[in-house]
């Protein structure tokens, strides 16, 4: 009786250790995937929260600011960990499926790290390059009825056509000795 039982225990132990190994390998691959998921959330949440035509609460802004503030550093660190894990797992000669997963996790982690450093709002609304100015006589690009924002400081007058401002949103200038930003 005793021997049979001990044999059964032995065989159970063997199965256990094989399962642990398999589970361990799965966990190994899971870690870079989880790291990537975390970095995706860090960059994705503010993109979602502060998108146009969505109602923003003060809390949304707080969370977005925090994530935008820290994601360039945080997501780069996560990408570093991901690459480190991929390197470790790669040395264990993983199978084709696992290798593909690891390559994908690395590529996506690098992509999110790059995205965390981007200002995607300026992709669509680029700041003006060099700002150049015309006199009223030269300004053939404007019609009389076009609206402008005008400012006069210390005797110097400058006008910013609204259609240009509505695209760039921000124009830096110096008028009458004052450093200004025109916004619309």
């Amino acid at each position: 009786m005793g021997r049979i039982r001990s044999g059964a225990e032995a065989s159970e132990n063997t199965t256990d250790s094989e399962e642990t190994k398999v589970a361990g390998r799965r966990r190994g691959v899971l870690i870079p995937c989880l790291l990537f998921a975390a970095s995706l959330l860090a960059v994705g949440i503010p993109v979602w929260l502060i998108q146009p035509f969505r109602h923003q609460t003060p809390r949304d802004l707080e969370v977005s600011y925090f994530l935008r503030r820290w994601s360039p550093v945080g997501v780069s660190i996560l990408a570093g960990f991901t690459l480190f894990w991929v390197f470790r797992l790669w040395r264990g000669s993983p199978g084709l499926l696992r290798r593909r997963t690891l390559v994908l996790a690395s590529a996506l982690s690098l992509f999110t790290a790059w995205f965390a450093h981007q200002n995607h709002f300026e992709w669509k609304f680029r700041p003006p390059g060099k700002t150049e100015f015309s006199t009223p006589a030269e300004a053939s690009f404007l019609k009389d009825e076009d609206r402008v924002l005008g400012v006069e400081i210390n005797g110097e007058a400058a006008a910013y056509p609204i259609r240009a401002l509505a695209y760039h949103h921000l124009v830096h200038d110096r008028v009458g000795g004052v450093e200004l930003v025109a916004t619309y």
Binding site: S134, P136, L142, E152, A157, A158, A159, P161
Partner: peptide, 10 residues
């Protein structure tokens, strides 16, 4: 403001 300057389009 006849002497105004006007931002040119980029």
């Amino acid at each position: 403001h006849p002497s105004t300057r006007i931002l040119e389009p980029d």
